[in-house]
């Protein structure tokens, strides 16, 4: 099986704050990786380097064979022009904790924006795609609504559909249910589970341990800028080898 995501020795600092301290990571095609870990451990930063929203200081990030943000010539990395970076990003869908839907555009326009202007696909093709995706997340009747008129759970489902509209090879979720009222968490997790069963490669940061147990192929525990431990959910969640993992899990379980 081929690697969809491959991180090697990734370092990232904000000023004097060393947030990522040499992360190695492999996610194979069709796999679901869940990342857990305490707040401030660098989970979001790691996820953001995987679609080049954050540039790495050292190390390399490859997605579907593309070296993200750079072109390798000999043993030197040349920064890619922005146009190329944007093209690489269209292979990757990102779902934010705060949804970040475009409030001045309707649900349909939110979905169609990237396929039309980033991928330059014809409208005749994108319109039915948007309809199909909205049906898939159970919001076929909300195409002409503005995001503000929807519940948090519905907004996040629209955001997932918007990410899917690029027909990406990889989906990244940064705490997709953390901004939701408890009773709305289930409907969003159901959509993500459905995608996981459909064979989409994804990395999900979440505190929902039950979700991790059910859909993850592997779970990574992150602390202080490093992946401390990684393994199948049954092993990492029930039989962690590291003391720090055990301490963290005892707090969230």
């Amino acid at each position: 099986m081929s690697s969809m995501v491959e991180l090697r020795g990734v370092h990232k600092s904000f000023g004097s704050l060393h947030v990522l301290r040499g992360v190695d990571l492999d996610v194979r095609q069709g796999q679901v990786l869940v990342i857990v870990g305490p707040s401030g451990s660098g989970k979001s930063t790691l996820l953001r380097t995987i679609n080049h929203l954050e540039k790495v200081d050292r190390g390399s990030v490859r997605v579907d064979g593309d070296l993200l943000g750079y072109r390798q010539v000999g043993d030197r990395l040349h920064e890619l022009p922005e146009r190329e970076v944007l093209r690489q990003r269209t292979k990757i869908g990102f779902v934010f904790q705060a949804f970040n839907l475009f409030p001045h555009l309707t649900v349909r326009q939110n979905l169609m924006e990237a396929p039309l202007s980033a991928q330059r696909r014809p409208r005749t093709e994108v319109e039915p795609l948007a309809e199909r995706l909205l049906a898939r997340v159970g919001l076929a009747d909300k195409a002409d609504a503005y995001p503000r008129t929807l519940s948090g759970g519905q907004q996040q489902r629209v955001a997932i559909a918007r990410a899917l509209a690029l027909e990406p090879k990889l989906l990244l979720f940064d705490e997709p249910t953390s901004a939701l009222d408890p009773e709305l968490v289930g409907e969003v997790l159901d959509v993500i589970k459905d995608l996981a069963r459909g064979g989409t490669t994804m990395i999900v940061i979440t505190h929902e341990i039950g979700f991790a147990r059910e859909v993850a192929d592997s779970v990574a525990f992150m602390d202080a800028g490093l992946i401390v431990e990684l393994g199948p959910p049954a092993q990492l969640l029930d039989n962690p080898t590291h003391e720090r993992t055990r301490a963290f899990l005892s707090k969230v379980l």
Binding site: L86, R87, R89, F94, N100, S117, A118, A163, L166
Partner: peptide, 19 residues
Amino acid sequence: GQREAAAALGLPPARRLFR
């Protein structure tokens, strides 16, 4: 978050600004 979402979707810079 709006800039981030637009960048994450791969929208070209002029489109991000004007749309």
